[in-house]
Amino acid sequence: MAGHTVTRAELSEAVYREVGLSRNESSELVDTVLDEIASCLSQGETVKISSFGSFQVRQKSGRMGRNPKTGDEVPIEPRRVLVFRASQVLKARINAALAKLR
């Protein structure tokens, strides 16, 4: 799988093509979209994008971990992690498309 990696540049190019704003503005808008999502998440708020998926922040408590190489005990601090849950629409789209490829 994963033949190709899509980057910000390609998203900007798609916005430029689809919306018809300048390349510069398209690229700034893509950054702004991601930045707004990140800023919302950093305040612990869930972000839901319908027919795409939702991003949720989860609080993990601290625990003792181990360095798997040396076996040393290492404390893992309490932290916040981000989980992405894909919507049914996105899952269905991926499976329908990949079934066709096979």
């Binding site: 994963a2 033949g3 190709h4 990696t5 899509v6 704003l21 398209s26 795409f52 498309a97």
Partner: peptide, 23 residues
């Protein structure tokens, strides 16, 4: 349209089996 395009491009890429990397 900008927002729709961003998420649609990501979905389309995943449907092709591609990765999407946003530094």
């Amino acid at each position: 349209r900008v927002v729709a395009t961003v998420f649609d491009e990501i979905s389309a890429a995943l449907a092709r089996g591609d990765r999407v990397e946003l530094r």
